[in-house]
């Protein structure tokens, strides 16, 4: 009887191993090519073991081509968007957690619905909105200075179409619904008493926020920031729609355009680029993983 039991358990365990190995094989196999080809001087579209290893593709990407520029643009745009998301979601999540006003419930429901709006459905109207904002900004720039070089510089920074500001703001808007949910959930878990105790001890509002609230909500900020970063970093639709000049290209666009050079696709270059583009996302995801369940179930259950 006892032996039959262990025999059965061993069989189940064996099945578990087999299933896990099969799923893991499926998950890992597409990565071999990109990791090998990035260091293979004779990189092709096909998976093959390099005869010798080289860092030449990375050198080429960063020194001869615009790799550094693309990295800089991606880091700047996604970094600023993540920062703005954190600030606005911090305020918004705190207000939603603490208020008992009539708008609390409708707003929370509205944020769930806003969160599930599919971005591709917005491309036409958002494109229009961005064009209006763009011409407004450029009119202001024209009145500010008559120096053409300054105009170009200002318009590069503050334009909504083909400018940094537009991409930063649209990424922020897209990441806000989830981030507000996360922050609201985390603030809900911090008892109001802490703030009141701090106030009784004579702390100013700012001190309470800095010394009490932010430290306690730190895991919330970490989760919200990581998810905002990962999603904005991986987004391809917004840069595709609102970037045209090469100076503004980010990593996904640089990669996409390099891939469009149909006549001569340089697979070494592309795989090196893919490695550089993927690495920050994988690192961020490894930190974000532990927040995944509590964020999504929390974001829904409140």
């Amino acid at each position: 009887m006892m032996q039959a039991q262990t025999h059965l358990e061993q069989a189940t365990q064996k099945k578990a191993y087999l299933t896990l190995v099969a799923i893991s094989f499926f998950c890992v196999i597409p990565f071999f090519w990109v990791l090998l080809a990035a260091f293979d001087p004779q990189a092709t579209q096909f998976l093959s073991l390099p005869k010798e290893l080289t860092a030449g593709h990375f050198y080429n990407l960063l020194v001869n081509e615009s790799g550094v520029r693309w990295i800089f643009n991606s880091v700047l745009i996604v970094g600023l968007a993540t920062l703005l998301t954190l600030v606005f979601a911090g305020f918004g999540g705190y207000a939603l957690s603490r208020t008992s006003a009539w708008w609390k419930r409708p707003l929370l429901y509205a944020i769930i619905l806003v969160r599930i709006v599919p971005p591709p459905a917005l491309i036409v109207p958002v494109y229009k909105v961005m064009l209006w904002l763009n011409s407004a900004v450029n009119n202001v720039i024209l009145t500010l200075t008559e120096n053409v070089e300054q105009q170009i510089l200002l318009s590069r920074i503050f334009s909504f179409v083909d400018g940094y500001l537009g991409l930063v703001l649209i990424h922020t808007a897209m990441q806000l619904p989830l981030a507000i949910w996360i922050m609201k959930t985390f603030f809900d878990a911090i008892p109001k008493d802490y703030e009141e105790a701090a106030a009784l001890d004579g702390a100013s509002q700012m001190q309470t926020v800095r010394r009490v609230l932010i430290p306690l909500a730190l895991p919330g900020f970490a989760a919200a920031g990581l998810f905002a970063f990962i999603n904005a970093w991986g987004d391809f639709l917004m840069p595709l729609m609102f970037t045209s000049s090469p100076e503004l290209q980010t990593l996904p666009l640089g990669m996409f355009r390099a891939f469009l050079r149909v006549d001569a696709i340089d697979y070494g270059f592309l795989t090196a680029l893919a490695v550089i583009y993927t690495l920050p996302a994988v690192i961020a995801f490894s930190f974000a993983r532990k927040y995944l369940t509590q964020t999504f179930s929390g974001g829904v259950k409140g």
């Binding site: 597409p30 080809a37 991986g234 391809f236 996904p252 990669m255 893919a274 583009y277 961020a284 490894s286």
Partner: peptide
């Protein structure tokens, strides 16, 4: 960790990896 890896990859790179597959 292995099963989580694909989830971390940007969609642009996902397409690219599978074009080779």
């Amino acid at each position: 960790a292995i099963i989580c890896l694909p989830n971390a990859v940007p969609e642009m790179v996902v397409g690219f990896l599978w074009i080779s597959m």
